[in-house]
Amino acid sequence: MRLFLRRKMPGLVRFVVLGLFLIGTLLPFCWMFVTSLKSRREIYGSTLTLWPKDLTWANYAETFRTSNFPQYFANSLIVSLISGALVLVVSILGGYSLARYRFKGKGVLMLVFLATQMVPVMVMLVPLFIVFGNLHLLNTLSSLIITYTAINIPFCLITMSGFFQRIPVALEEAAMIDGCNRMMTVVRIILPIMLPGIVATFVFAFTAAWNDLFFGVMFTTSESVKTVPVGLNSYVQKFDVNWGEMSAGGVLSLLPVVVLFTFIQRYIVSGLSQGAVKG
């Protein structure tokens, strides 16, 4: 019995714990999906059904018809892709510098980048609103692209410098002896090796932009420049929440993130464990 406890118990505990986490994680998503498949009458009916009695895709059709969902979706995609790409370029340059050079003020700079993580969004909101107002950039996608790029750079840069540090300097030196210059070495040899890290950083910046609410609410007012969360939020504020359409919109907005995330979550863990954050 004792032997049984020692041998089998840990496995059993692990199984139960992971099972609970799996159920706990999936339950809210499942509930949203189930709701999205119900008719309006069933959602607001007198009894709650755990699975739609008559399954319908009408909420999805309605979401596309009555809200500007396709427009929001396109805006979110544009904003997140561009700011993700910009973040990547700036953090590769800066991350390489922090990882490979020794120079005066490096420690201070590192501290500065870390300190930015302390600045509350709420503190930045009003000053940036005033600045963008003066620049006549309010209510444009550019204001969002610029903001998302800026606020995600410090974290991504630190992460990126961790990824560079994982790559042996010897590799770079060997390439340079073979006649590559620094630039060529980095582009042709180092970056391809770092691809998982680059992908992870891009996805981090992409999701951060994709998911922001407050800057969007603050900076944009016309339908043509609203992102998905902002658009759905204003829809919710304006009309009474229609939970069926809300859920359908939610499922749709989840798709790109889920696809990206299933792709890269492995890289995130392996990247971090090899010292990306500890650097």
């Binding site: 994680t25 999936l26 998911n211 609410l213 969360p229 759905l232």
Partner: peptide, 14 residues
Amino acid sequence: QAVVFLPWAVSAFL
């Protein structure tokens, strides 16, 4: 792992 880490990537709004 992909499933249990998923909430991390979803928007607070949703």
